[in-house]
Structures are given as structure tokens and as C-alpha cells.
Nucleic acid binder design. Structure first.
Length: 571
RNA sequence: CGGGGAGUAGCGCAGCCUGGUAGCGCGCAUGCUUCGGGAGCAUGAAGCCGCGGGUUCAAAUCCCGCCUUCCCGACCA
């Protein structure tokens, strides 16, 4: 491609409404333009990156035996009524009516449609298993779109759905996708990690998120420093500690102390001159079926998902002021386990063996000190209900966990028979018995993956694309296109590379060299070859690698071979 | 939905407080000189000053309403 025939509207200045690096660079490099909040046009340069990314995804999906199809973007409400999600999905589902007042929605995901397709086409176990996928548009009317294409409302997603005859088959399909995803992100040239995610009511280890590691990532992930355990914070478990209860002879005297208006851990600590690790934080939750008190150490944070899973309740939310008063007899900020009656008390493992703690007194402006569990109150159970953090013990190997940040670019999930049951996607087994198909779903946000790649790989000059998704592999900078000789040398090289199927961009613009070099760095093409005065004078071309900044001179005669040699080693 | 910014030329911004010919830098067009890391000079095109209403002789500027957009939070995956 010749630059003058292409469209790369680069911006020198950072657009005012872009906050994160990937968003800024995608705008500045001319990959995207915004149309409305969370809605972007993909320009030719960005399109090339998207297509390269999609193509790798497609190849790996195909290799894993998945079949590509395209499902409708506009979906009839009836399907969503059938699955029961029309009333559950909320405002994120953009609903609309056609001219006949029939209700439709823009697809935020395609479980309903794919289940409808499959139930109409597959009726025998002989046709299973099957995995179908598309790379297509989605629309989710996010409450707050942000970070450019990272959290857009309209976006391109690869979504795949597997259908199996039984659980064992579904697990095999899941593992195939897990392997395919690992291949995909490796081929894309990304540093990533698959982490265990909360799988909600399904249970088991059948939900993984694929996270691109980047300091600017929105999600915190927990990784074991020794084994290969990794999970997102919602899911990350902490090994139950092997701690004895503290010896009673060290117990201090239980005492009620006045703590006027001291509600937060910080206030209580500074008032009583103690530290958060010596405080029992008591949180009252509403399960929809009675209140529960959860205890964690003052320097720990509750993990509501883990608590919810432990309690096996369908709803869980922090109690409101009224419920707190009803349960504890005191306003918010003074709840404590001592003397608490009529609610289940679940304590985090982190409180095991604690001694002489501070807790709320269940009375306005009162806390109690020297609280000791075995003497002053009892809990219904100990459980792992806090957020894992740096230094906590790995659930697999007991070594310390560490936290790092990442961007979720893929999610694989075992669905079970949720949709096949509600939507009657059944097949007959060898005995003629009817069963619902066992499903799985597998998503990759293509645009988000591109953004994550940029987030992970850039410098102050611009994008540093991983070679597999770079819009072009090689950029020839023709320094002075009005110079006959330079022009000829550059054109020859360009044609030769094109002839060998190399993705090459020839910057033949009549611009000053500085502009061309700046743009080259900005759009992040892995290998830059400069044809300028050196080419004419000494017969030398300059090759420069975007990633390392390494620069070598290549004699004209060797240049072509040197470039071909370099290509496979680009990363 | 709550809190906080911002809407003026394609982009970045000033002007608004204190009402009176709409400006600057970059970009764009033309010419000349330049040409290995965002050139210089000259000339030029480009604006419903977010929208609607009000006050006023007069509104980018003051008042009211609305819309859009960005950030934080709540929410979601």
C-alpha cells in the first residue's frame, strides 16, 4: 500500500476526551474515530489491525473444529421471553420496535439465537458435539462507556457456543476452547494469563477469564508466586489457615468503651490507638431470606461473591440502615458480634486465633475491647469470605499470592443446560430418550484485545504493535519522493516485497522526513526501512526495529533478503 | 442515577468575570525557499460560539431550560 493512496489521519495532539493510552493512541494513529459515546468508526488502519486479529482468532477456532456462521444482530423479543432474559437483562439490552410495533433488541450476546438455530437443526446425538462461532457486532447499552473501545457499547466480538450430549462432552469442548484461546493470545503476541473466574451457580472450575497483563488494566488478578494458580479477585481463594485458638490466659478484660461518632475502622483505630488488624469488622447482609453477619479483620475486605457462594443464596446485598438497626440495635458503624442474636454469624478465616480484638458494641457510640471469640461470642462457621491480596496463602500450594493488573479480553464459560432447558433444545440419545444439550459459551472482545495490546505495548512515541496484528509488517520511508533515484530504489523494494506477499506500506508522501518518522513511530509498524540520501550515496538502506530501537545498515543488494529474514523474527 | 469538568474552525485552546467587528497554535489550500526526527516566509479558505427560550438598542459573554460529552462513584461482564 502506498501511503498517498491510503488514509491514515494521524493527530499531533492528544484528543481532549481520551483518558487512557490505548484510546489516545488509537485516535492519534488514525485507527478509529468516535461517533457517539461508546460508538466508534474503525478507519482503514484500525480495520487492518482488527482483521488481522480476527483472522488469527478464526484460524484457531477453525483448527479447534468450530464452525463459523453469522447470527442476526437484531433479535426478536420472543426468543428473550423464552429464555426468560427479556425481563432480567435490564437497560443494557437496547430494545426497539419495528414498524408493526413488534419488539426487538440489539444482540448483546447470542445464546438465545444460537440455541434457536441449533434446536431447529439438531435432533440426534449423532450430530453432537458441535461448536459454532461468529465474529460479529454486539451492542450493550453500558451505563457508562469509557476508555475508548475498551468498554464500548457497540463492539466486535467472537462468540462461540458448544453443544454436547453430556457433561463429560461439554467439559471436553470447554477444554478445547481453553486450548484454542491459549493459542490465540500467544499467536497475537500478548503477555496474558488465564485466570479462574467465578462461575456462579454452575460451580466447578469451568469459567476462565483470559487477561492481558497491563498495569493500566481495570481488573486485579491474583497469581501464585510458586504454582500456576491464578484467579480474578472475585474468585481467588485463600488457603484455610492452620491456626490454634489463642490461649485464654492471655485474654484481656472485656470492656465497653465510649466511641462517640466513631464509625469507620480508621476513626475507631485512631481514637483507640490501635491498628485495623486488631479490629473485627462486622458487616450485616440481607440475603433476601434473613440477615447474616459477616466478620472480617479490619484490614481485610469482604468478598461478597465468595460470601454469596458460601451461603448459596441467590441474592446478597449490604443491609440498609433499617435492617442494621433491627439486627444490632444500633445505627450503622457500631455492629459487633458480642451479644448479637438472631442472625447467622460467618467469620473469615483471617480472624482465627485472633486475640483481644476491638469490635462494635451494638449500641450507639460504643465499642468493646479485648474481645475474644471463644469466650465472648461464637460464630456459626469460619469460611473463606475475604478478598485475596498480596501475601495471602495460595489455595493449592500455600505459598504467597501476588496481585497484578490485567484487561479481560476473553471469557470461557460452561453454561450447562440453562438455555437448552428453557428453550427446548433437545436431542434423542441412542435409546431414544430426549435430553437437553449441554452448552458452553466462549467470547473474545476483538476490539478490546487490540486496545489491550496497545495498552501493553507502547512508548512515549506511540504504538508498538506485536507483529502478528500490526497493520503492516514493514514500512518503507521514502525520504524524498522527488528524488528520482530514491524513488526508484524505494519503488523497486516495495514491488518486490509486495510480490512476496509482505504487508508493506510505502510512505511516498511529499512531507518532511521528521513528519514521516514521527508518524512511523506513532502507528507502530514493527520494521522500518528508510530510503534516503544514504541509499543514493552509499547504496545503504537503514533498517530500524520499532520495538527495540535497534538500527542497522543494509547494502542495497542485500536489503530485500535482510528484510525477509527479519520478518519471522519480529514480535 | 449521584458528584465534578467541558461544549468556540478538522485537532488543541483563549475570549465569557466586566455584553459592543470571533481570535491563537497546529492542520488544510496556493506560491517560493527548504528536506535523515513534527521547517521558514507570504497569501488564503474554513465558525448557527451545542440547541431552545429569555433579558438588552446589542448576547460566545448575563438568566432559565434542554442536549451532548469526559472523569469519579453506583451498575454490568
Amino acid at each position: 500500500m502506498r501511503y498517498t493512496q491510503f488514509l491514515i489521519p494521524t493527530l499531533r495532539e492528544v484528543p481532549a476526551d481520551a483518558e487512557v493510552v490505548s484510546h489516545q493512541l488509537m485516535l492519534r494513529s488514525g485507527m478509529i474515530r468516535k461517533l457517539a459515546a461508546g460508538i466508534y468508526s474503525t478507519l482503514p488502519l484500525g480495520e487492518r489491525v482488527m482483521q488481522k486479529t480476527s483472522q488469527i482468532v478464526r484460524e484457531e477456532m477453525n483448527r479447534a473444529g468450530a464452525l463459523e456462521l453469522t447470527l442476526p444482530f437484531v433479535q426478536p423479543a420472543e426468543l428473550w421471553h423464552e429464555s426468560g432474559r427479556w425481563n432480567v437483562y435490564g437497560k443494557e439490552l437496547l430494545r426497539l420496535k419495528d414498524r408493526n410495533e413488534r419488539e426487538f433488541c440489539l444482540g448483546p450476546t447470542h445464546e438465545e439465537v444460537i440455541t434457536d438455530v441449533v434446536r431447529g437443526l439438531i435432533s440426534s446425538y449423532k450430530q453432537l458435539p458441535i461448536t459454532l462461532y461468529q465474529i460479529h457486532i454486539k451492542f450493550r447499552d453500558e451505563i457508562r462507556p469509557r476508555f475508548g473501545v475498551m468498554r464500548a457499547r457497540e463492539f466486535i466480538m467472537k462468540d462461540a457456543y458448544s453443544f454436547d450430549a453430556d457433561e463429560a462432552g461439554a467439559e471436553r469442548s470447554y477444554m478445547k476452547m481453553y486450548a484454542a484461546y491459549t493459542n490465540i493470545f500467544a499467536r497475537l503476541g500478548l503477555r496474558f494469563r488465564a485466570v479462574e473466574a467465578d462461575s456462579g451457580p454452575i460451580g466447578g472450575s469451568f469459567s476462565h477469564e483470559f487477561m492481558v497483563l497491563a498495569d493500566t488494566g481495570e481488573d486485579v488478578i491474583v497469581i501464585c508466586s510458586a504454582c500456576d494458580y491464578a484467579a480474578n479477585t472475585e474468585k481467588a481463594e485463600i488457603l484455610a489457615p492452620d491456626v490454634r485458638d489463642a490461649a485464654p490466659d492471655r485474654f484481656g478484660v472485656l470492656e465497653r468503651v465510649a466511641t462517640p461518632d466513631m464509625r469507620t475502622i480508621e476513626e475507631v483505630c485512631s481514637f483507640l490507638k490501635t491498628d485495623p488488624a486488631s479490629v473485627i469488622k462486622t458487616l450485616v447482609f440481607d440475603t433476601g431470606d434473613g440477615a447474616v453477619a459477616a466478620l472480617v479483620r479490619g484490614d481485610h475486605d469482604i468478598n461478597e461473591i465468595k460470601l454469596k457462594n458460601y451461603l448459596k443464596c441467590s441474592e446478597l446485598s449490604l443491609a440498609d440502615e433499617e435492617l442494621i438497626e433491627k439486627v444490632t440495635g444500633a445505627p450503622r458503624g457500631f455492629a459487633g458480634p458480642v451479644g448479637l442474636r438472631g442472625v447467622r454469624i460467618i467469620a473469615d478465616y483471617g480472624l482465627k486465633g485472633s486475640i483481644n480484638m476491638v469490635a462494635g458494641g451494638n449500641e450507639r457510640d460504643v465499642h468493646v475491647v479485648n474481645v475474644n471469640m471463644s469466650r465472648d461470642f461464637s460464630v456459626d462457621a469460619f469460611a473463606d469470605i475475604r478478598l485475596a491480596g498480596d501475601g495471602d496463602a495460595c489455595p493449592r500450594c500455600a505459598r504467597p499470592l501476588t496481585t497484578t493488573r490485567g484487561i479481560e479480553v476473553g471469557h470461557i464459560f460452561k453454561l450447562g443446560t440453562k438455555y437448552s432447558t428453557s428453550m427446548q433444545a433437545q436431542f434423542l440419545d441412542a435409546q431414544g430418550q430426549s435430553h437437553p444439550m449441554v452448552m458452553g459459551c466462549y467470547g473474545i472482545g476483538v476490539g478490546r484485545t487490540v486496545a489491550a495490546a496497545i495498552e501493553q505495548s507502547h512508548d512515549s512515541d506511540g504504538i508498538i504493535f506485536p507483529a502478528p496484528i500490526a497493520p503492516f509488517s514493514v514500512l518503507i520511508v521514502l525520504v524524498n519522493p522527488t528524488d528520482e533515484q530514491q524513488n526508484q530504489i524505494a519503488a523497486d523494494l516495495y514491488e518486490k516485497l509486495l510480490g512476496h506477499g509482505v504487508d508493506v506500506l510505502l510512505d511516498d508522501r511529499d512531507e518532511r522526513p521528521g513528519i514521516k518518522f514521527k508518524d512511523a513511530d506513532l502507528i507502530g509498524i514493527p520494521l522500518r526501512v528508510t530510503v534516503g540520501r544514504n541509499a543514493v550515496k552509499d547504496g545503504c538502506l537503514d533498517m530500524k526495529w520499532r520495538k527495540t530501537g535497534e538500527q542497522v545498515q543494509a547494502p542495497l543488494a542485500d536489503a530485500f533478503d535482510r528484510i525477509l529474514e527479519a520478518l519471522p523474527n519480529l514480535q
